[in-house]
Design a protein around this nucleic acid. Structure first.
Lengths: 149, 149
DNA sequence: TGAAATCCGAGTTAATAACTAGGGATTCGG
DNA sequence: CCGAATCCCTAGTTATTAACTCGGATTTCA
């Protein structure tokens, strides 16, 4: 029930771009360096994010990536679902299969549906801007702690 | 982000035992037949459920399994976590690693924590008795539909 | 023009999921 | 007391997938 690196790394990438938002593009090289991840692997991931319209790319030297919208307009849910597909605990829920058993009903299915809904409601309620806000609050706290030492 | 067959089959097994609860034991053979699953595979799964104290087993001919408690005392969460381990979207959340990055903080971690909490709150709020109630309601509805035809 | 970047598809490797196999131990019914 | 039914346990197998890597093409700026 773990999220793959696609979703996890993808969100970290998007957070890097969110911090940079409004200040031009950022190269994949820098994103990879900041998050200590493989550049060639991130390349694949960001390609999906671009095709989904979440980031813009500028090719050629001095090129890079940038968010296509402001951080407050992009949710964690969009990012993760773009890279992972639907976050369903069982395939039957996403494919909307008529019934998994020949009995005509499945007792576990409503449970998978409720889990999926609850996950989605969490990740759809968080935007990149929220992450930035939390991040800055954390930084301020840490600085305060250091001063008091 | 899919649940493995361990959790999915395990829950189906426990539901079979819950229906039978109060009427003696049920053999693995019958459980497997009812749910159309591999008997030898289910054997492994139920072994964990037994060690976790969720089911009792009676060995020998005419033996079988039964719930160790009443259906209302067993939650879906207990069953799934027994078979799947903690339902965390990232390992860092379950191992309680101090920090994943050398920067001293991780912006994505609070999100994984919130997802985990939300999944757990769903599955911990559903008992086997709830599943039985839903199941019986469904049966009655179907019967009603048939009568009206 | 050449270095820096994005773009693209295919290939590799290691881990894991999902079983299967085989034999041992226990218990009941006849 | 025997044999069939059942649980118990460990190890092996197979297929899939995750997590990358690689090579090269294209674009653009300086």
């Amino acid at each position: 029930m773990i999220l793959s690196t696609k979703g996890r790394y993808g969100l970290k990438m998007m957070f890097e771009l969110a911090k940079k938002h409004g200040n031009g593009t950022m190269s994949l090289k820098d994103i990879a360096k900041n998050q200590e991840l493989s550049e060639t692997y991130l390349e694949q991931l960001i390609s999906h994010l671009r095709k989904a319209g979440l980031v813009n790319s500028i090719r050629g030297a001095q090129g890079g990536y940038e968010l296509s919208k402001t951080p407050s307009e992009i949710t964690v849910g969009e990012i993760i679902r773009t890279l992972e597909g639907p976050l369903a605990p069982s395939d039957c829920v996403v494919d909307n299969e008529p019934e998994c058993t020949k009995a005509g009903y499945c007792v576990t299915r409503p449970i998978w549906e409720r889990i999926m809904e609850s996950i989605n409601s969490v990740i759809d309620s968080i935007t990149l801007q929220d992450m930035i806000n939390d991040f800055q609050k954390l930084i301020l706290t840490k600085e305060g702690e250091n001063e008091r030492e």
